[in-house]
Design a protein around this nucleic acid. Structure first.
Lengths: 245, 245
DNA sequence: CATGTATTTTGACCTAGATCAAACGCAATT
DNA sequence: AATTGCGTTTGATCTAGGTCAAAATACATG
């Protein structure tokens, strides 16, 4: 039981977090989980539009998303921007900063959100004590590499329609893993942000969504999406429904 | 001094490897380096075209490239392929397989090559003992994530000419870091492989190289490349020469 | 509720790169 | 030297998606 907490620096125990099935504690025994509570993980709140960190900031911590939705983006010097990912509850962000100890991208809240700040030094020290945590941390980083390779495949060799289908199916699967409806959800990001992520212009995103709708694969009403024919969406990306993106 | 070795399972000591400035031992003290020698790292040779591993193979080890050149590629079910990277001496490959313990891509030698096989269980165990090694392993993984994000930016928002310029400058910098000439080198890969990596067709790669040549930025003779005007190449990618790709 | 601002949709047109096809160069083989 | 075969270059066309512009819709704020 937690008491006498400040609003800004509420210490959070992983063992009592309802995201423990998705987040850092995956694969840890109860005994190990208690050790993880030794981590001084701080809960913080962000409003829509707030920066969790900025490119160039000194790296100290990874961040586990408790609630809400973030995007990460890299800015090119000439003003071009590339959204590199959309992150939701249970996902860990900040991994790109470990290499240089300086954040390489911006992380921005797309809706009001809460995160757990995980001081990386402590996380490393603890993972020397807990092999299961060490392995899981490695898996999280490796998973990010695999994800990025999937996006490279998408950007390098898929058409607009396939990119959108893959994007929507990926969101669907991640919502489903969190207990939300897989076939109907609200987009948290603009067409422009989707386009940046998928290497398309916002007009193309809009047109392609309309086209998927008129072909009966989805229903779009502004930011609300319904997947009407998941089978044909999977056909479009040339994947079996079992395989994650 | 090493004696009585078999051709296939030569044990290699990191402490006596001339790649230690680039590879796993970076940032380790001499004392730590000796511990790293406890790792049963096995040297193996591959011929041009050989697979180091295939997508679907069980993951056991990371691989450090001692000499030679590799490509990694992911194959889409419908036959599309995407080259996800070209790797040279001192670079570590196989990181993508940690997450699922199954390799997610193919790794293929582009010329006769030698690698060090690094059993991952042992590497993890050792990195629990050596914080500097642990940190370095994390940095290697993080650097791969940053690299992938750079490619996402390239694929998502750059034109053919910019992609080729960025590609050539990146190779140049990596050759330079290994003591080779920065401004003249041989490509180890085909136009088709470059195209797959950069999200372009091989004809576009060829045309764009010709165009860079006629603009005086490079000289191309088949696989041999000379960077004639590095300054303007950097201008093209909108980067200052100091910044790595 | 009215007004101003951002986002989305849709249309008309344009272009970078894809596609298709042919010729060329170079290395290995006979 | 001729043959074969792969990789590369170059040309002629085509098209998916970009660009530019305007209208429609949603959203925020006084």
């Amino acid at each position: 039981m937690q008491n006498s907490v400040s609003a800004l620096t509420l210490r959070i125990a992983c063992s009592s977090c309802n995201l423990r099935e998705l987040c850092l504690p995956v694969d840890l025994s109860n005994a190990e989980l208690e050790h993880l509570d030794a981590l001084t993980s701080i809960k913080r709140s962000y409003h829509r539009g707030d920066f969790l960190y900025r490119s160039g900031d000194k790296f100290t911590s990874l961040y586990a998303i408790r609630t809400g939705f973030f995007k990460t983006q890299v800015l090119h010097e000439d003003g071009r921007e590339q959204v590199t990912g959309f992150q939701m509850a249970g996902e860990i962000i900040g991994l790109d900063a470990i290499s240089s100890e300086i954040h390489a991208c911006d992380a921005i809240a797309l809706e009001d959100s809460e995160i757990c700040e995980l001081p990386f030094d402590q996380l490393e020290a603890l993972s020397r004590e807990l092999p299961a945590l060490q392995r899981h941390l490695h898996k999280i980083m490796s998973r990010e590499i695999v994800r990025d390779q999937g996006i490279m495949l998408l950007l390098g060799s898929m058409h607009a329609e396939e990119r959108l289908a893959a994007f929507l199916l990926n969101l669907s699967q991640r919502f489903a893993a969190r207990g939300y409806a897989a076939n109907a959800f609200e987009l948290r990001m603009t067409r422009q942000e989707i386009g940046s992520y998928l290497g398309l212009k916002l007009e193309t995103v809009s047109r392609t969504l309309s086209q998927l709708q008129s072909n009966g694969l989805i229903t779009v009403h502004n930011k609300s999406i319904e997947l009407s024919d998941v089978r044909r969406l999977f056909d479009l990306v040339g994947q079996h429904p079992a395989a994650p993106l």
